[in-house]
Each structure stands twice: as C-alpha cells, then as structure tokens.
Design a protein around this nucleic acid. Structure first.
Lengths: 210, 210
DNA sequence: TTATTATTGTGAAATAAATTACAACTTACA
DNA sequence: TGTAAGTTGTAATTTATTTCACAATAATAA
C-alpha cells in the first residue's frame, strides 16, 4: 500500500531514490529484470536495510525470492519524483561552470530540461550556448514566465549572486539550486539547495586531517 | 574553553564553519571588526542560536555587548579546519566540469591547492590547463606520491568513475570528492563526499512539485 | 540605583535519519 | 515432509542535528 504521506518523504530518501533509479536504468541495459536490496546497496555504498526502508516508504513491495522488479520500481520512482508535466529550468550565468553543467545535463532527463540561460556579457547573450538559448538578464522575467520556468540554477560570480536571486524570485521560480559561494535566502514556499565546492573541499580537508 | 573533542564536530557544523569564515572575510573587507550571531545568521539563512551553538562547539566565546571579534573567529576556524601544512589536491578528468572547478577554485584558499590534473586525452595531458599541470593517468601514482596529494576530485565520465577511483585509492589519497553521477565506495579510513547535479535537481523538482 | 533591552551560552526537548533486531515468507533440497 | 538458507518488511532503538527555553551578563536610560 502506498504511503499516505508521500510528500513527507525524508529528503535523504528522495536523493537516494534519484540515484536508485539511475542505477536501475543501467541494470536494465545490462539485461537484468530483478534486483535484490543487497545488490542496490552495494552499488550505492549503503546497507541493504536502508534500501528496503526507502522502498518501504514509497510503498513498494518486492518478493522474497526475486527481490524487486526493476521496471516497476523505475516507474514508481518516476511517479513520485518526476513532475507530470516536466520541470523547466533556467541557468543563471553562462561562465565555465554554467556551461559545464548545461552540457553535462542536457538530454539526461526527459522530465527536466534546461530551456534558457541568462548572462549580461554581450559575448554570451543572444546566441545559443551548449544547446540552450542565452538571453540578456533584462529579458529574464519575460522569458521565465513565457517558458514556464520553475527552477533556477545559479552559477554567477559571487558579487552577482544576490541580484541574480532577486531577479529569479521576482520572476516567480519556486526552486533555486545555488552553486555560487555566497549563501542566499529564499522566502517561504521557495526551495533552496546549496552546494559549494569550497565548502565541500574544506570539509574533506578537515576529515582527512583528523 | 576549547572543546575536548574537536575532531567530533558534527559534519554540518564543519560545513557551516567554512561558510562563516568566508562571510567573515567579506565583513572584514567592509571594515567591520565585530559581529553578532543574528548578523551571521541572517547572512547564512540560519537561526542565531544555531550560529551560537556552532561557535560554542569550537569553544569560542563572544561578549554580550560586542558579539564576536571577527579576526579572532577567522583565526580559530582556520586552526580547526585548515591543515597546518596545507592540503594538496588532484583533479581527475579535465573535461568541462574539471576545468570549470579548477579555474573557479585556483587561488581561493591558501591551505588548499589543486596541484595536478589527470586525463587520458592526448589533447589534454602533458600541458598546463587552467594553471595546473595535466598528466596522463599512467603517471598518476608517481605524481600523487611525489606531490603528496591527499584529496582527489572526480570529474570524469560516468563509465570511467570506478577505474579513476581505484587508481586514486591505490595511489593513497585519503579523501575523494565525487562529482560524477556514479556512486563510489571507499575503504575504511578514506573519506568521501558526493554531490551529483542530477540528484540535486531531481530533489528540487520533487520539492517544487509538492 | 533600578528597570529595560539586547545579547551570549547551554541544558533539555524535539525532530530527522540510520541502524538493529527480528518476524515472516519462499525456495531448494535432504 | 522438514529444515536450512536467503530474502523482505518493519518496529524499536540509537545516533545526529536542530530548536526551544531560559539563565546570565552587559549596556543604557529612566
């Protein structure tokens, strides 16, 4: 029976679901049809019980003899984490990192597409970069609304972070993925994920040093 | 009084310390000498009590009237998270993402430096890219040991992830920052941080959809 | 001097996430 | 048939992290 409160899934579980699905795609390509919790666990560097608990939370049941049916599981994870209509994404700042993320990402997910980029460098706007049309930021609100963009990825220079965030929020995006080194704030109802390379490296350096 | 067990700081606290320090550098440049927990909290999108607790955990005390002394705090955070001798880092895979990270990072931290890159594309190895010497992977072990590299950043293609990890572990790195979309495993005593763009976006899309 | 306000420091409680322990089921096969 | 091995599902516990509640302190102004 599916969980009554699927929207209350732990954040960590949601992250792992995304990764399970990716590994399951690979397994399908290798011709597998079923998979055990311990196989998924080993691929992800987790314990089998963690895998089973995550799947329990989304209401999926396997069989004791065959484990989980891969294609059903892929499809259920899709129902839970994908938006029905697809999510449209904008990338703010077409520097090295912006371009790298755009090329890396494009075409990887049917339900998630980067449909616009913004920059204020004349070398960049009014052309197509990494397969995505790049606009001057004075067109931001118009494009975000016309293209129905719900998520923004920030890859601008540190000093431009707050202005970029402000523009995106005014244009109405509901989620921000911040890759700059500057923390940002968002109002109630908007979601934020922040990943900063320097922080990650400093944390690792701390752990290694101990 | 400094915490007896500084090496048992919560991981989240370590991450925030890195970010506090960065914001404190900015504040110093703006001419500030002291700062209150609520100011730091607002800049980081946290509660003041969380800031105070983090500082408590590292054994730093402020004053009720003046708050915290910025330069002392910067220096204490440095003592805790920086390695005395500095940490040397290698980047594995000089594609778009590898180059973007290298250029973004270079020179940002005195105690952390990217000193080598590895790739197996003849267009890339045996030259300097983004300011860093790039070697063929058959020189990996030699260079890692000679350069005393303790941390590796993985930015290779998905299918190369496991081989890249294996080589780095054999060469003796103690920390891996994995930016590929493939989960990796590390043995006891090696630290791992994983950040995958697709997972982050899928998580955001899930949150936005709710 | 005393009350008021703003701050830090921290024990205790609440919340989030991972792990343990084990019941229940299925298959293989002695 | 019975039992051993391997699996899933989940309650209970443990661990990690955040938040609440409030005591203590310092500065300010009545």
């Amino acid at each position: 029976m599916p969980n009554k409160k699927i929207e209350e899934l732990p954040g960590k579980t949601v992250e792992r679901l995304s990764q399970y699905r990716r590994l399951l795609f690979n397994s399908v390509e290798l011709g597998k049809t079923n998979i055990y919790s311990h196989e998924l666990a080993r691929m992800m560097n987790l314990t089998p019980v963690q895998v089973r608990r995550d799947l329990m939370l989304i209401g999926y049941s396997g069989s004791q003899s065959k484990g989980y049916v891969i294609k059903d599981l892929i499809s259920l994870i899709g129902k839970i984490i994908d938006s029905d209509t697809g999510q449209r994404i904008a990338i703010m700042g077409m520097g090295n990192l912006g371009r790298a993320i755009t090329s890396y990402f494009t075409g990887k997910r049917e339900k998630l597409s980067i449909v616009a980029a913004f920059d204020n460098d004349p070398q960049k706007y009014d052309r197509i970069i990494a397969g995505v049309p790049c606009y001057h930021i004075n067109k931001l609100k118009e494009v975000v609304q016309k293209e129905n963009i719900g998520i923004a990825i920030l890859t601008v220079a540190p000093q431009a972070t707050h202005e970029a965030t402000k523009l995106m929020l005014e244009a109405g995006v509901k989620g921000i993925l911040n890759y700059t080194s500057v923390p940002v704030s968002v109002p109630e109802g908007v979601f934020l994920e922040e990943y900063d390379i320097i922080t990650s490296l400093e944390k690792l350096a701390f752990l290694v040093k101990k």
